[in-house]
């Protein structure tokens, strides 16, 4: 199989972006055009004059990947070149859930035939681990640090898949780096579904979350097993498939692996805060029937 995303890039050992991108291109195939917003992925894969991309790739700005993708799709159609070529945007959580949300909303509402993949590592990693709207409750980041009077980020994650589904997207799915085959299959399905489709990939960041570079997949799996990251597919706004997790692991097993949550185990009142995170997992388990 031809490698569409090749090594030599400047990603960290155990980098979630590199893994998620590899899975995405394995699902999308070589007849595709990729758009990346500004972020780790863009910086680490294209230090001029080098590139890791064996598919046509464009980076414009931080907040406009979905608009650029719209323009590519419209131009291919106008010039009779669309054929089976897939247009795929791959962006981080900041570019997707914060600064690029308006452009994404516009592109999904207009119904362009493209797939948007969010690699969600739950903070602005490229600039040094600042909080985004993908940062989970009680995670310590450099702009939502745990301190004498704070347990870190005080808001739960924004529910991005639900926002996209509300736009009438025909296919929305969540994926995890621990389930590569599942992700490849979902990306394939998304890119083969006409219209604007969405993949949200949970992607542990070794640098930002504070864990050993060998543990990326293990941590991703634990997020799923606790119920904190449910894996599902939505078609035409309805949940059509859910990955069952059997007996859920307690959230402590996930939290204690990462230094961004270490204050929960050392600070007075931490147990109560962990219970709140457990409640989030329990709610997911109930809501999605995990």
């Amino acid at each position: 199989m031809k490698h569409l995303f090749v090594s030599g890039h400047r990603g960290c050992a155990g980098c979630c972006d590199a893994m998620a991108t590899k899975f995405t291109l394995m699902g999308a195939g070589e007849d595709c055009i990729v758009v990346s917003p500004t972020g780790c992925l863009e910086v680490m894969t294209t230090p001029f004059p080098e590139t890791s991309w064996n598919v046509p790739w464009i980076h414009s700005l931080f907040e406009n990947a979905a608009a650029v993708a719209s323009g590519i799709e419209a131009a291919l159609k106008a010039m009779g070149k669309k054929g089976n070529t897939r247009v795929v945007a791959i962006g981080g959580d900041g570019a997707t859930m914060d600064i690029g949300l308006q452009a994404i909303s516009g592109a999904f509402e207009r119904g362009h035939d493209f797939t948007y993949v969010c690699i969600d590592n739950e903070a602005y990693m490229n600039t040094g681990v600042q909080r985004s709207s993908g940062t989970p409750f009680n995670a310590s980041t450099t702009t939502s640090p745990a301190g004498k009077v704070s347990f870190g980020n005080q808001r739960p994650k924004k529910n991005m898949p639900a926002i996209i589904a509300a736009h009438g997207s025909p296919y929305v799915a969540t994926t995890s780096l621990a389930y590569g085959k599942d992700m490849i299959a979902k990306v394939k399905k998304a890119t083969e579904t006409p219209g604007p489709t969405y993949i949200h990939c949970h992607a542990p960041c070794t640098t930002g979350w504070g864990f050993d570079t060998s543990k990326t997949v293990e941590i991703a799996r634990m997020a799923v097993k606790t119920g904190l990251w449910p894996l599902f597919e939505m078609e035409e706004g309805e949940i059509t498939k859910v990955r069952k997790i059997g007996t859920p692991s307690p959230v402590e097993d996930y939290l204690k692996m990462q230094s961004r949550f270490k204050h929960l185990f050392s600070k007075e009142g931490g147990a109560e805060e962990i219970a709140k995170i457990q409640a989030i997992a329990d709610k997911n388990i109930d809501h999605y029937g995990l």
């Binding site: 464009i58 419209a74 131009a75 291919l76």
Partner: peptide, 15 residues
């Protein structure tokens, strides 16, 4: 912002 951003993509495919 998106008006011109979309044209970045369009122009890059030769439109």
């Amino acid at each position: 912002f998106s008006a011109l951003s979309a044209l970045v993509g369009s122009s890059a495919v030769g439109a």
